[in-house]
Simulated scan of single mutants.
Amino acid sequence: MGWAGIGRLVVFALLVAFLTMPDAFAFVFEPLTENNAPAIYNQGSLWSLTVSHLTIVFGAGLASTVLAVALGIFVTRPSGLEFLPLSRSLVNIGQTFPPIAVLAVAVPLVGFGEAPTFIALFLYGLLPIFENTLGGLTQVPPLTLDAARGMGMGPTRRLFSVELPLALPVILAGIRLSIIINLGTATIGSTVAAKGLGEVIIAGLQSNNLAFVLQGGLVVALLAVLIHGLMGGIERFALRRLGGERGGALA
């Protein structure tokens, strides 16, 4: 394990310790408080808020992945090529409208809570996954596809045995980008009563307590670093496995 891996383990241990025993870190945040304000967020459990935050981010990420990958596959098939402009327009909706605007539209339809936040994150996360799926599938070498046809593979088998495995590292990079973006974006969900780390930040802003603001922002930032590292490791593993399979095929 390299220094980067050791550093991530240390960060993970500190984050877990802070979330499970936040009062032990009060001395770090006390200089940021005024008028005997609490140094540690005391209006809820930091651990449960973090779990809620991650649940909605990964839930929306899973939904975005399913739709974006399916669309990417569809528009790279001969029968779906003509739908590429329409598909691009659909996945661009989340990036065209700010998440706060999506929340404003969604709240009258589905009410307050996690539902409007889920919708905003789902729409916001589509574009990077779709574009990477599209890029990964269209970059599969034609000679490889010709070889698969020569081996008697039909379209479905080529897709799942050749195209998707070759495109997987690129698709994973899109999923990683989508998740990291939405980790920060999810904090706005607290404006519509969704449980998450944005609740800590908003409480700090309302009470002029910088300690709360720093706690919420710091936890989100550390989660982003850890998840970025974890998903980057999965991408590297997929690349190494892909390289090994290519080497085995050439041998």
Rank of each mutant, 00 (worst) to 15 (best):
W3Q: 12
W3I: 13
G5A: 09
G7V: 03
R8T: 14
L9D: 10
F12S: 13
A13H: 02
L14Q: 03
L15G: 03
L19W: 05
A24H: 13
V28A: 11
F29Q: 01
N36D: 15
A39S: 12
N42M: 06
G44N: 12
S45C: 10
T50G: 10
S52G: 14
I56W: 07
F58S: 05
F58K: 06
F58T: 00
L62V: 13
L62E: 12
S64N: 08
S64I: 08
L67N: 03
V69L: 14
T76M: 07
P78R: 09
P85V: 01
L86R: 07
R88T: 06
S89Q: 05
L90W: 00
N92S: 08
N92F: 09
T96A: 10
P98R: 00
I100Y: 02
V102N: 06
V110W: 15
G111L: 07
E114L: 15
A115Y: 01
A115N: 04
F122P: 05
L123V: 02
G125K: 11
L127R: 10
P128T: 02
F130D: 09
Q139A: 15
P141R: 09
L145H: 06
L145D: 03
L145Q: 04
M153G: 07
G154E: 09
R157E: 02
R158I: 01
S161F: 05
V162A: 00
L166N: 04
L168I: 01
L168N: 05
R176H: 02
R176L: 04
S178G: 04
T185D: 08
V192D: 05
A194K: 06
L197F: 02
G198T: 03
N208V: 10
N209Q: 02
F212W: 00
F212E: 00
Q215G: 05
Q215S: 09
V219I: 15
A224C: 13
G229N: 06
G229F: 08
I234R: 12
F237W: 15
L239E: 14
R241L: 12
L242H: 13
G243S: 15
G243K: 15
L250W: 12
L250E: 14
L250C: 09
L250D: 13
A251G: 10
